[in-house]
Design a protein around this nucleic acid. Structure first.
Lengths: 198, 198
DNA sequence: TCTTTTGTCATGCGACTGTATGACAAAAGA
DNA sequence: TCTTTTGTCATACAGTCGCATGACAAAAGA
């Protein structure tokens, strides 16, 4: 067995090329040739690691989800006060700097794509469920710490909070809000949940 | 000048065909041939009314925006109590039945497309601004009527409310929520704004 | 050394893309 | 009647698409 190659690394490399194309020119510009060129490899090599375009897109979607998950885990490691963590988590999801803007542009493209692709939708829903559970946990923790109103339904408020975040993302990516306005909206919303800054 | 044809009607017909394709198979499946077939006309006829694919998509986007605007105007005509109207307006934006689901599927596809197409983004922002102003007006009216907390910043709450709606739309279209859950989330959110049902 | 496996590549295939062009029918004004 | 305008259509064009195939290099086991 010669030429030991890390298949996962190659696939990640391909997925990243897909991300860049989606970010720069949109999902419609993703083709095997374009991806190969962006990844700096031949089309045949791309085909060797990815049997079909559909599989390639799914791979790119899963990788973006993993990336977001890692970023949120890093946030969790940086904050201890529950409300602080909750706020930081949501801020992490918003397009407030170049990298988060990049993530969200790619993410929104995949959300739209997932509407007509059940495999992608499945991956998307798994990410949703994970994130919602995390947010609900933080809300409950904040309630216990007396930093959020005790009468809140944590699960529903987690859904509302995440919906708010996604909606803000949509609007911002289309150019309706600036990063500065976005953070103000989040704080306004949290204040309505009885937020007591720690 | 023979064969008097209503150009606007033809263009609407084409735009509707675009909508159906976007809804059924996604934005990537929109091609002049596909649209011509869906519209029941030849490709040459489509080209006669629409000079380029980009213009065709922009036309379809503007028509969807107009459609949503009409639906909201109809809602406004049906409700008088401010909070009632506010709630009904947001519900109108959510994918709670077949038609609203259709509108939102097409709408989300265009949102993603607008991220990499400045002309579409411009049209999108105009729709946003209009809708946000409308929501803010209703919030202020509800405050005056004592149906919403008086200390709310109407403009910001309008932004939050609309972001919430859009986020719920995203999640629902990907299959994360059922229509029943969606309405419950809205009422939970409004309750937090001090809503007093009229 | 020879065989086998693993990876890379160029190329071909039929189908489809957006756009341009020219033929042509129908109807109104000359 | 003849010309001109308006609309429709089929077709040609160069380019791109996803995918399949076969040649070939490199390295490890026989």
């Amino acid at each position: 067995m010669p030429k030991i190659v890390d298949h996962d690394a190659r696939r990640r490399h391909i997925a990243d090329a897909v991300h860049r194309i989606v970010h720069d020119k949109g999902m419609e510009s993703v083709s095997l040739r374009e991806v190969a060129a962006e990844a700096g490899m031949s089309m045949g090599a791309v085909q060797y690691y990815v049997t079909t375009k559909e599989q390639m897109l799914l791979l790119a979607l899963e990788r973006i989800g993993g990336w977001i998950g890692e970023r949120i885990a890093a946030v969790a490691a940086r904050h201890s006060a529950p409300l602080d963590l909750l706020r930081a988590t949501v801020l992490e999801l918003l397009p407030l700097d170049e990298e988060r803007r990049y993530l969200n542009r790619v993410g929104l493209a995949f959300q739209a794509s997932s509407v007509v692709n059940e495999n992608q939708a499945l991956a998307m829903r798994m990410g949703y469920a994970h994130l919602l559970a995390f947010l609900a946990d933080q809300i409950r923790a904040a309630q216990t710490a007396g930093q959020l109103a005790a009468d809140l339904d944590a699960n529903r408020q987690a859904s509302i909070l995440y919906a708010f975040a996604q909606g803000v993302v949509n609007a911002t990516l289309v150019g309706h809000y600036t990063p500065a306005e976005v953070a103000a909206l989040l704080d306004e919303h949290l204040a309505r949940l009885g937020a007591v800054p720690g």
